[in-house]
Design a protein around this nucleic acid. Sequence first.
DNA 1: TCATATAATTAGAATAGTTCTAATTCCTTC
DNA 2: GAAGGAATTAGAACTATTCTAATTATATGA
Lengths: 153, 153
Amino acid sequence: MATHTEFQEALLHKLSDSGLRSTPQREVVFKVMLQKRDHPTADEVFARVKSAMPSISLATVYNCLDTLVSCGLIRQVNFERGPTRYCPNLHPHAHFHDLQTGSTHDIDLPPGLIDQVKTILPEGYDASSVEIIFRGKTSFAAASAILPATGQN
Amino acid sequence: MATHTEFQEALLHKLSDSGLRSTPQREVVFKVMLQKRDHPTADEVFARVKSAMPSISLATVYNCLDTLVSCGLIRQVNFERGPTRYCPNLHPHAHFHDLQTGSTHDIDLPPGLIDQVKTILPEGYDASSVEIIFRGKTSFAAASAILPATGQN
DNA sequence: TCATATAATTAGAATAGTTCTAATTCCTTC
DNA sequence: GAAGGAATTAGAACTATTCTAATTATATGA
Ligand SMILES: [Mn+2]
Ligand SMILES: [Mn+2]
Ligand SMILES: [Zn+2]
Ligand SMILES: [Zn+2]
C-alpha cells in the first residue's frame, strides 16, 4: 500500500512548485473540496472541515482556499455579489446558476467553443480567460427530491 | 422645442410601466448614466451626480440604480467580489475586463452567438440569460495615454 | 384647496463576507 | 537544538451594501 494517496501527491507537487509547504490544514481543506462535487462557500468548507479538524480557524480556511486557487488545484466562482464559491472541477466548464434553488451546476464545454467565442473579440483584445455563466431554471426537480437535500451546490 | 427630452420619455414610460414615479433623483442618476459610456460603481455615480444635485444621498443613488436596473433601463455587472458596476449599454454584449488597467470594455455580440452557446446545455436546462466575461490585456494603450485618464470604466 | 395616503428620500446604523494585524506555533535547515 | 522563515490563529478592521426609522414629496379626490 502507498504511503501517499494520489490526491496528496498532486497537492504536494503543486504546492512545492509554488514554493509552498504541504500542511495538515491545506490537506484537509483540499480533501474536503474533493469529497463532494459542489460549489461550497468558505463558510461551508469551514463547517465540513471542522469535523475532521475542530481546531482549524476560518482565517486558515480562507488562506488554504486562496492557496489552492493560486496553485490551480481548485477554482473560484462568483455570482453577483454573493459569497465566493469554490469549485474542484478543473475541466473547462461553464456554470449554470439555478435561480429557483440557488444551486450551481457544471456545464462541460465542448472543445473549441472557447476559441470560437474568442473570435468575436476585435483587434487588440487578448483574452487570457473566458467565463460563461448561464442563469435560469432546471426541469429535473425529481432527482433532487430523491437524492439527499444538501442545500446550495 | 419639446418639453421632454427623449431620455426623459423613455424613463417616464419604463417607470410608470412598473408603477413607479419619475423623480428628480431618478432623472439625474439616469442622465449621468447616459452621459459617459463606461461602467461606474455606485460611488462613482454618486460623485458625478453630486455636482448636479449636491443634496442627493448615497442611499438614494443605490435606490435609483436598483430601480433603473429593475426597469431594464441599465444593466448591472460584477467582476469577482468587486463593487457592482452599472452599464448603460442595452445591446446584447459581453464584457472584457482589462486586468492591467482595471477598465471594462463592451464587446458586441454577433446575432445568434448566444443561441449557439446555449446549445451546449444538456436536456432540462433552461437558461434565461447568458453572461460572457473575458479577462486579459489589451494592446492599444496609446489611446488611453492620449485621452484624459479617467480611472476605471 | 386641503386632507389623506402612499411613495420616495435621507442619515446613519447594521450587516456580511473578507482581509488585515500581530502574536504564536510549526518546520526546515544549519 | 538554535535560528529563521512559513503558516496558523483570534479577533479587529474594512468595504460595499442593505436596513431602519424619520422626514419630505407627490398624487388623489372630497
Ligand atoms: Mn459573476
Ligand atoms: Mn462576475
Ligand atoms: Zn464548477
Ligand atoms: Zn457593458
